[in-house]
Design a protein around this nucleic acid. Structure first.
Lengths: 111, 111
DNA sequence: ATCTTATGTTACTACTTGGTAAAGTAACCA
DNA sequence: TGGTTACTTTACCAAGTAGTAACATAAGAT
């Protein structure tokens, strides 16, 4: 596996369960059981997915008694957006305008 | 592994070598040897990466005598962009404006 | 025909991933 | 103290990934 920032974020997103978890987290903090609930999957499996997301910096975790709530982190998404902008000329002219619009946040593509 | 469209595209992008290959393809069609050249890696390894990219729909391959040139395909990038827009409210307000601007192309997030 | 170049396939290895069941820990509750 | 809830760790398995070396094929050049 590649361990750079961007690769971690992309491969974390490359699983429907993890994308669903992130979508659930959009409405705020969630505990592990709340996140596990919609899935037909054991606890440990969810724990593993959460670790992948945490390692990729897509979520952060806190502590509330015996609960370990998760919440979204934004930064990796920006990095992915920056990556897409690299390939942009090849797939969507309309995003060129956008590029100009948002020129102030020129996140560099690392890798 | 997850075999849905979007997961395939994201995990294909989750490797620096494959991102480099895509970047090289931005300047036009390339043969396998041309693509392999910058990397300290055997031919078969590159062939495998190309298969991953092809399976994800990120490139397409043609035939020119004994060469099998590769070129970029756009579609999966749009899908990824659509995914990002789902999480967008959480990471960049400035992209909200964009959302409105580009509302006509409302690609659905599948998975 | 044969050599060379370009590319692909097969077989193998080491490692990672995504899942399970079962046991372990940690905090609150009675 | 003992039970319950919430979550993690460990040990395991099957499948997938990323690489290699060696061999196979295909087309063009001599």
């Amino acid at each position: 596996m590649s361990t750079d920032h961007l690769s971690l974020a992309l491969s974390a997103l490359a699983h429907p369960v993890r994308r669903d978890i992130l979508a659930n987290l959009m409405s705020g903090e969630r505990t592990v059981t709340e996140l596990a609930d919609p899935f037909d999957m054991t606890g440990p499996a969810i724990t593993k997915h959460l670790k992948v997301l945490e390692r990729a910096g897509l979520i952060e975790r806190s502590r509330d008694a015996q609960r370990r709530p998760c919440k979204l982190r934004a930064d990796p998404f920006r990095e992915i957006q920056a990556l897409l902008r690299v390939y942009q000329p090849f797939w969507d002219e309309s995003f060129e305008k956008l590029d100009i619009l948002l020129a102030e946040e020129d996140n560099r593509v690392e890798e």
